[in-house]
Amino acid sequence: MLFALEVAISGLLSGIMYSLVALGFVLIFKASGVFNFAQGAMVLCAALTFVRLLELGVPFWIAAGITLIVMMVLAVVIERIVLRPLVNQPLIILFMATIGLNFFLEGLAQGVWDAQVHGLQLGIDDLPWEPLANSTGMLISIFDLSAALICGVLVASLGVFFHKGRIGRALRAVADDHQAAMAVGIPLQHIWAIVWAAAGIVALVAGALWGQRLGVQFSISLVALKALPVLILGGLNSISGVIVGGLLIGAGEKLAEVYLGPIIGGGIENWFAYLLAMVFLLFKPYGLFGEEIIERV
């Protein structure tokens, strides 16, 4: 039983990291109705920039600050030269543009820096947390705990920022009705730049945390794929949805790996999330918390 709990907890902790990546998608989707295919490339960009700056001897926090600025500038540039000219085009065209952006960013990041595998040390040990191990015998990694804490705080503060207050209201207004939002004087471009910048922050944190786990390299952009089932589960336009979705998937895949793995063969962790998502698509296509479209005549 204790072991099951341990598995569930470590699953939940990695689930929060999925939530974080998924949140990047949700913010952009809410503001512009665009599914940002380039989210993974942004993670790669941020992580590479960060790790290379560290390797150049830039102190940790300054490197983090510079990367953050780079991501924000990138957000504004993307809004200016990719999104703005495509305003009012069908959404599928914007989606295609983000696919293009994805390859461009991947190329850019690896061109400016390089395509080697870089180890990243955030200074958090990947060792069991002693007090917990001593008192209950559960082995929960300090790194997992800290990563979850960081992600949790970030997800919560982004959630609050984009739900309450002037900007949050404006974001939700834009999500509901672009034209009416413009009519009340909300500049769509600002909102877009803000959500892309937020997605940039998310990319940096996700890139750094996964970077320590997997090493910073091209494949880190694939963490974005982990966000897909979370999005399907939670709903593409729900901030609380991605939090719950991430937790469910994180815990679900770990438990499945441990308990179903021996029966149907290992590697469940790799596809369990997608299976869960498919089942959800059949029964709850809007996701757990996805906003249904209010139709009234």
Binding site: R169, R172, A173, A175, D176, D177, Q179, A180, A181, A183, E291, I294, R296
Partner: peptide
């Protein structure tokens, strides 16, 4: 004020 009462429905 646009025609057709464009409220932000989820607000």
């Amino acid at each position: 004020v646009m025609e057709g009462r464009h409220c932000f429905g989820h607000l």
